[in-house]
């Protein structure tokens, strides 16, 4: 208790710590929001919770890692930043192709089944991927050195890792591209139409099965981008995917199903909340706060719905 009070006191004495927590929360949150956006897209369009999201992210990370290793051996003179940026489309394409294969083999067969079936099936895929990656890429922690220094401001009171800044920037750029695609392109319109009413979209001449496949592949591409960002901001390890799955799961629920735009806000908000909770209550409680807020928010939403004689379904 005293620890908590003294931490609060510290925030009051040194207001710049608030700024650091806020900025770091925003930067990390934008990466998580990107991953959650993909999950929300698949969830909203085809009613499938992709538990393998985290494994896809890690797979993208490995694709980026091996590409960068390969390329920087070929051209040792070039700066690593170029390879980091070039690795993004490569990883995106690799994971998109892979997730298309997953769609064709498994997901297409469970499209019209219960949501709960999709949870289990994609969980199985996650298990398979985790250990396959563990066997193929070994259990060693992989990290890409982006060669960016930490930026310090206000006499080292605010420290922002340069790689995080780059990662967040790339994440935001990707998010903007995807939002533009969703809003203005024919493909994006078809996706939105399918998610609103698949039957009506089919009558209007949209090949919904193709849209489902492409949506799943688009989600794979998003995971690939996120993976190559994760590879130089955090670390890549075969069993680390669960973190991203659970985190994006929490974000999507907090945003409310079917509310894709709110995912980005929820992602940023959750990361900021988490940073402050971790600072005030101690880092060992940080994750507990992240996951406790999910049932709490759902309960509150349920009580609100109940007053309107409705229920959460």
């Amino acid at each position: 208790m005293n620890q908590i009070l003294s931490n609060l006191e510290l925030l009051k004495i040194a207001p710049l710590i608030n700024l650091e927590l806020l900025v770091n929360g925003l930067l990390v949150g934008s990466i998580f929001a990107l991953i959650a956006y993909g999950m929300a897209l698949v969830w909203g369009v085809m009613d499938i919770i992709n538990v393998a999201q985290g494994a896809f992210v890690i797979l993208g990370g490995y694709a980026a890692f091996y590409f960068i290793n390969f390329a920087s051996n070929l051209f040792p003179a070039a700066s690593p930043i170029i390879w980091v940026i070039l690795s993004i489309p490569i990883a995106a394409a690799a994971v998109a192709l892979f997730s298309y294969l997953v769609f064709a083999s498994v997901i297409s067969r469970i499209l019209n089944r219960d949501l709960f079936v999709s949870l289990l099936a994609t969980f199985g895929i996650e298990l398979v991927l985790q250990q396959l990656m563990n066997q193929v890429f070994t259990a060693e922690d992989r990290i890409i050195d982006s060669g960016l220094a930490t930026i310090s401001m206000f006499q080292y009171q605010v420290n922002i890792p340069g790689s995080r800044l780059l990662g967040a920037g790339l994440g935001i750029a990707t998010a903007i591209v995807i939002v533009l695609i969703m809003r203005y392109s024919r493909f994006g319109q078809a996706i939105r139409a399918t998610s609103q009413n698949a039957r009506a979209a089919g009558i209007m001449g949209i090949d919904t099965n193709k849209i489902y496949a492409l949506t799943f592949a688009l989600n794979g591409a998003i995971c690939g981008v996120a993976g190559s960002i994760v590879a130089f901001v955090f670390i890549i390890h075969p069993f680390q995917g669960v973190i991203y799955t659970l985190r994006s799961f929490a974000i999507v629920i907090l945003a409310g199903l079917g509310n894709i735009a709110a995912v980005i806000l929820a992602g940023l908000g959750l990361a900021i909340y988490e940073n402050f909770a971790g600072f005030i209550f101690g880092p060992q409680l940080q994750n507990a706060f992240v996951f406790l807020i999910v049932p709490v928010v759902l309960l509150i939403r349920m009580y609100i719905m109940r007053r309107q004689r409705k229920y959460l379904e």
């Binding site: 709960f116 929490a250 629920i253 994750n287 996951f291 379904e313």
Partner: peptide, 23 residues
């Protein structure tokens, strides 16, 4: 009082949260 999807999701979140709280 929740139904269907939301019940499954919430209970999943409770399981995860319980582990983190115990931690």
């Amino acid at each position: 009082q929740m139904r269907g999807h939301y019940f499954a999701i919430t209970t999943l979140a409770i399981g995860v949260a319980a582990a983190e709280v115990a931690r």
